[in-house]
Design a protein around this nucleic acid. Structure first.
Length: 446
DNA sequence: GCGTAATCTAATCAACC
DNA sequence: GGTTGATTAGATTACGC
C-alpha cells in the first residue's frame, strides 16, 4: 500500500495512547496463543484480556503487529533463500494463513444510536483525527468503547474523504458557512426521573449515588449550587454540575471532601444539547494532580473557565467564569480562590446515576460535564433552541472554534495564556446573589 | 538506535435495514 | 442492495528502553 501524505505529518504531542509495555509473562502468553491461532476471535481476545489484564483492543493490535512481523520475517527469509542460497530452514513462509484458522467469531456489531452518531459527527466535523484524549472523551460522552470510536473514525474517514490531517478547517475555507454544531436529541424521559423541581435535592441525591467521581472523592452534601443541567437518553450518560460556595470549595478545603478529591478541570469545545449550550469539563483524579505531567492526564491541558460565550457575560452565570481556576501546567486545581465547580457523570437509572462501565474505560477516566448554562433561559433574547443555535453559530466562527479547541485537543497550550489573567473570583456575597437568581430561574424540562 | 506499540489507509467481509 | 461496523494487510510513526 502506498504511504499516504498524511502519515508524514507528525502528530501533536499527546495525540497517541500511552504506549503499553507488556510484561514478560504477558508477552509469553500472547506468543503461546499466537502459535496456536494468529487470528483469535473476539471471545479469545476478551478471555486473554481478562487473564492478562490488557485491554482487548490492545490484544487485537498486538496480534495485528505480530502477524505483520512474522510475515515480514518469513518473506525476508524467503528472499534470502532465493537470492543467497538456502538458509538453515528457519525462515520458511508462514505455514499459517487466515483460511487455516476457523475464526471464533467477530465482535458483535456495535449498534450506534442516532444520538451517539450525532456526537461523533460533531467531533468528526471538528477533527477527523482525534487524539486519544478526544477519543476517550467521546467514549465517555457516548458510552461507547474507545476502540469503537477509533474504528468509527477510521470508517468515516475512508467513506467521507475530503480533508487531510493537516487541516480539518480546510473544508471550511471551501465552505465558508459550515455548521460546527450538531443538535443532540435529548430524551424527555431522563429529566422526569430527576427531581429537577428541587435541584438541591436532585443533585444531592445524584451525587450521593454517583460513581463517576474519581476514587477518593466523596459525595458531599449540597451547600447550595446552581441548578444542574442534565442531558442524555436512556443508556446514555447523564450529566450534572453543581456549584460549591467559596467557603466550602475554595482550594479544595479540608472541610469539603469532594473538592479535595478534585484536581483538574478541563474544557473542551462547546456543544449544543437540545437548546443547551454547554461546555464540558474533564476531571482528573487526585493522583493525576500536581506532580504529574500533563500528558499523563490523558493529554489534556487545563484551561480556566474563562471562555464562555458572550451571552453569559451579562447574566448572573458570568460568575462561573471564575468558578474554575485551573492551573496552567501540571498543577491543576479545579478551583482557585473562588467558587468551585464540582461535576460528575453517570447513567441515569431510576433516579440514580451509574458510572458507564465498559472494559476499556480506565477507572477514573475523564468525566464530562456541562459547566453549563442555558442561554435561552438566562438570556431572553435566545428563547428557542433554533435561535440559540443560530446565535451560537454566529458567536463561534470556524476560526474561533479551531483556535478554541485546537490547543486542548492537541494537548498543547502556548506558554502565554492567550486569554489573559484570570478574573477575580466570586466573592461569597456574589455567590449567594448568583444562587438566589439561579434558583428563581425556570429550568428546562427537556 | 532498536524494537515494537500505535496509528493510519485501503480493501474487504458481514450484519442489519 | 445500501449502509456501516469489524477485520485485515501493509506502511508508517513515535515511544520506551
Amino acid at each position: 500500500m502506498a504511504p499516504t501524505s498524511t502519515s508524514k505529518i507528525s502528530l501533536p504531542c499527546g495525540s497517541r495512547r500511552r504506549r503499553l509495555v507488556l510484561k514478560p509473562t504477558q508477552q509469553g502468553a500472547l506468543h503461546a496463543l499466537f502459535q496456536q491461532n494468529p487470528y483469535p476471535g473476539i471471545a479469545t481476545r476478551e478471555r486473554l484480556a481478562r487473564e492478562l489484564d490488557i485491554p482487548e483492543s490492545r490484544i487485537q493490535v498486538w496480534f495485528q503487529n505480530q502477524r505483520t512481523r512474522q510475515l515480514r520475517q518469513s518473506r525476508l527469509g524467503s528472499a534470502k533463500s532465493q537470492g543467497q542460497g538456502p538458509t538453515h530452514g528457519q525462515e520458511q513462509p508462514p505455514s499459517w494463513t487466515q483460511e487455516h484458522f476457523t475464526k471464533d467469531g467477530r465482535r458483535k456489531r456495535t449498534s450506534i444510536s442516532p444520538s451517539q452518531t450525532s456526537i461523533l459527527l460533531q467531533a468528526f466535523e471538528k477533527n477527523r483525527f482525534p487524539s486519544i484524549a478526544t477519543r476517550e472523551h467521546l467514549a465517555s460522552l457516548t458510552g461507547l468503547p474507545e476502540s469503537r470510536i477509533q474504528v468509527w473514525f477510521q470508517n468515516r474517514r475512508a467513506r467521507h474523504p475530503g480533508q487531510s490531517r493537516s487541516g480539518p478547517m480546510k473544508d471550511m475555507e471551501a465552505n465558508p458557512k459550515p455548521s460546527p454544531y450538531v443538535r443532540v436529541p435529548v430524551e424527555p424521559g431522563l429529566l422526569a426521573r430527576v427531581p429537577v423541581s428541587s435541584p438541591q435535592l436532585a443533585l444531592s441525591n445524584t451525587l450521593g449515588s454517583m460513581q463517576g467521581f474519581p476514587a477518593g472523592t466523596t459525595p458531599v452534601p449540597c451547600m447550595g449550587f446552581a441548578p444542574p443541567v442534565f442531558c442524555g437518553g436512556p443508556g446514555s450518560q447523564a450529566l450534572g454540575a453543581m456549584m460549591v460556595p467559596p467557603t466550602q470549595g475554595g482550594q479544595g478545603g479540608d472541610n469539603f471532601p469532594a473538592a479535595k478529591g478534585l484536581r483538574s478541570c478541563y474544557l473542551t469545545g462547546p456543544t449544543l444539547v437540545g437548546s443547551l449550550f454547554i461546555r464540558h469539563a474533564l476531571l482528573c483524579p487526585p493522583s493525576q494532580g500536581e506532580h504529574q505531567q500533563q500528558h499523563e492526564c490523558t493529554g489534556m491541558t487545563p484551561l480556566p473557565f474563562q471562555d464562555y460565550p458572550q451571552p453569559l457575560a451579562d447574566n448572573p452565570c458570568q460568575g462561573l467564569k471564575e468558578a474554575g481556576h485551573a492551573g496552567r501546567n501540571s498543577t491543576t486545581q479545579c478551583s482557585g480562590e473562588g467558587s468551585q465547580l464540582v461535576i460528575g457523570t453517570g447513567q441515569a437509572q431510576d433516579g440514580a446515576f451509574l458510572q458507564p462501565a465498559h472494559a476499556e474505560m480506565p477507572g477514573w477516566q475523564q468525566q464530562s460535564l456541562p459547566t453549563a448554562w442555558l442561554s435561552a433561559t438566562l438570556n431572553p433574547e435566545h428563547q428557542t433552541s433554533a435561535e440559540a443555535s443560530s446565535f451560537l453559530e454566529e458567536l463561534f466562527t470556524a476560526t474561533e472554534m479551531e483556535e478554541d479547541t485546537h490547543p486542548i485537543l492537541s494537548g498543547c497550550l502556548p506558554q502565554e495564556d492567550p486569554l489573559g489573567p484570570l478574573e477575580t473570583p466570586l466573592s461569597e456575597e456574589e455567590f449567594h446573589t448568583l444562587l438566589a437568581m439561579l434558583h428563581d430561574s425556570t429550568w428546562p424540562q427537556a
